[in-house]
Write a protein that binds this DNA or RNA. Structure first.
Lengths: 136, 136
DNA sequence: TGTAAAACAGTAATGATTCCTAGTTTTATA
DNA sequence: TATAAAACTAGGAATCATTACTGTTTTACA
């Protein structure tokens, strides 16, 4: 199935490339809709999947039940705040070594790795009041 | 909220401790039902969540859209086969170093880490016919 | 331009998980 | 042992992210 150009796909990809916060499909939809009012949510999902399959973006599953998308396809780790849910990049030098080590030890083929750290981001550490408000 | 004993919870925990393949909630349900015929799926979910919150098991989100559960709560990586979807343990020595490195570089608090490798398991590598059948 | 393939908008369907409620089990205490 | 409060259960309804379907519009190319 040849891929044809679509304005919608380009707008989606452009939007993603301008963000560093790894938005969800719905966030992409809400934002792209500002400049492209009658794009449909299905189109957003279809193109995010297509771009992912073609390796132009990557899909992140950080464990909050919603897929996030990242236009940065370099190999890097992520951090997810257990309080506010924000997702940030966390580049670590040891990723290559780890992948090599895993390939050495595992009986099978390893193609890629996904590493995610969990904790509290700086903002949530500095504003503990927000946590009690949330739990109240 | 104090935790009271429940037969269902114990059966669920026992079942998980006897498996190394990181079953999903539904697999737990289907199996536990053999010996406990009218346990409900909601009870399975509730107890898996409760056990996870109490740190007696861990929840794995490997990116197939379904939660997996692991009675082994030691720090270890996982491997997920992109073909058959099986989930296996993959212990690596470098996990401690990686966590230390992440804590050094990240401005915030890091509590835990989740690392998952993706590729083809040995069985799927050895039976490439299954792959073409699947795609056909 | 004319046409076939691919993409679209809009909406319905799916499926994992959570929520709800009335009834049951557990546990602490008398 | 009774008993009462708190926690738990079964069963089913509700939620919500994502995918599938359908008739229409774009794109690519002759």
């Amino acid at each position: 199935m040849a891929v044809k150009y679509s304005r919608q796909r380009q707008v989606i990809h452009n939007f993603l490339m301008g963000r560093k916060d790894h938005p969800t499909a719905d966030v992409v939809y809400q934002n792209v809709r500002q400049e492209y009012p009658n794009i449909s949510l299905g189109t957003v999902y279809r193109n995010l999947t297509l771009l992912t399959e073609r390796g132009e973006i990557q899909r992140l599953q950080v464990g909050d039940g919603v897929d996030h998308f990242d236009a940065d396809i370099s190999r890097h780790c992520h951090f997810v705040c257990s309080d506010c849910g924000c997702v940030a990049d966390l580049p670590l030098d040891c990723m290559e070594d780890m992948l090599a080590d895993a390939r050495k030890k595992f009986d099978g083929r390893i193609d890629r790795q996904s590493t995610c750290f969990y904790g509290l981001c700086r903002d949530c550490l500095n504003h503990p009041a927000d946590i009690s408000e949330r739990d109240a």
